[in-house]
Computed example of a mutant assay.
Amino acid sequence: MKNGTKHIGTTSFEMQKEGTPAARAKTMETMHYQLQGMKAMLPHLKSESQFYVQVLKAPIFDKNVPNTFERIQGYLAQLTQWQEELNTLSHHIVVQEQELGAVCPKADESLWTVRKREHLALVRSYEILQKKLNGLKSELFQFIEGRLRV
């Protein structure tokens, strides 16, 4: 954190009190673009997880390798839970968009602070969800590598 700036991905906005409506308007614009970026990525993340579910359900694994069925079931359960978390995040993004649209740059400081904190929490949740999928992908590739039928 430098000069009161909180970095989120590749964008940032001031976390200290914005004294002018113009500064708040700029922050609102940044928050809006971040929400739009996350919202645009959700379908891609969902289709990617669905692809892994299809791979795990396909009859491509060698049945002679111990614990294959149990591991597949475990990965399917993790992907199902991940997809539920994605659906929850998607809902929260829509709610945040609506609430952000209802806040004007001249809103009182307490409401403004609440909206910024909620936005930061939402961004963190999105980043955590992405990291979970990346970790799960890595595990899946390692698992699949030695268990494909020849």
Rank of each mutant, 00 (worst) to 15 (best):
K2H: 08
K2W: 14
N3P: 09
T5V: 14
T5N: 13
I8T: 08
I8Q: 08
T10E: 07
T10Y: 11
F13D: 02
F13T: 00
Q16N: 15
K17C: 05
G19E: 11
T20L: 04
T20I: 12
R24L: 01
A25Q: 04
K26N: 11
T27L: 04
T27C: 08
E29Y: 14
E29T: 13
E29S: 12
E29F: 09
T30W: 01
M31Q: 05
H32T: 13
Y33R: 14
Y33W: 12
Q34V: 05
Q34E: 09
G37V: 00
K39A: 15
K39V: 08
M41V: 08
L42S: 02
P43R: 13
H44L: 12
H44C: 10
L45Q: 10
S49H: 09
Q50D: 15
Q50V: 15
Q50G: 09
F51R: 15
F51G: 08
Q54K: 15
Q54G: 11
L56K: 02
L56H: 00
K57M: 04
K57V: 08
K57G: 03
P59A: 11
I60K: 06
F61N: 01
K63W: 01
N64H: 13
N64W: 00
N64Y: 05
V65P: 03
P66V: 06
N67W: 03
F69W: 04
F69A: 08
R71K: 15
I72D: 01
Q73S: 07
G74D: 05
Y75R: 07
Y75D: 04
L76F: 10
A77F: 15
Q81A: 12
Q81V: 13
Q81L: 14
W82G: 00
W82S: 00
Q83K: 11
Q83S: 15
E84C: 05
E84S: 11
H91T: 14
H91Q: 14
H92D: 12
V94C: 10
Q96G: 03
Q96T: 03
E97D: 04
Q98K: 15
E99C: 06
L100W: 06
A102K: 06
A102G: 06
V103G: 02
P105C: 04
P105G: 00
A107T: 13
E109C: 11
E109Y: 07
L111D: 13
L111T: 13
T113G: 14
R115M: 12
K116Y: 13
K116Q: 14
K116I: 13
H119G: 00
A121F: 12
L122M: 05
L122G: 10
L122E: 07
V123R: 02
R124K: 12
R124L: 11
E127F: 03
L129R: 02
L129F: 00
L129G: 05
Q130T: 00
Q130G: 03
K131T: 07
K131F: 00
K132C: 07
N134R: 03
G135T: 09
L136M: 12
L136A: 06
S138W: 09
S138C: 04
L140W: 04
L140D: 01
L140M: 09
L140Y: 02
F141I: 04
F141C: 06
F141L: 07
Q142K: 09
Q142N: 04
F143Y: 02
F143H: 09
I144Q: 01
I144D: 02
E145D: 13
G146R: 11
V150K: 15
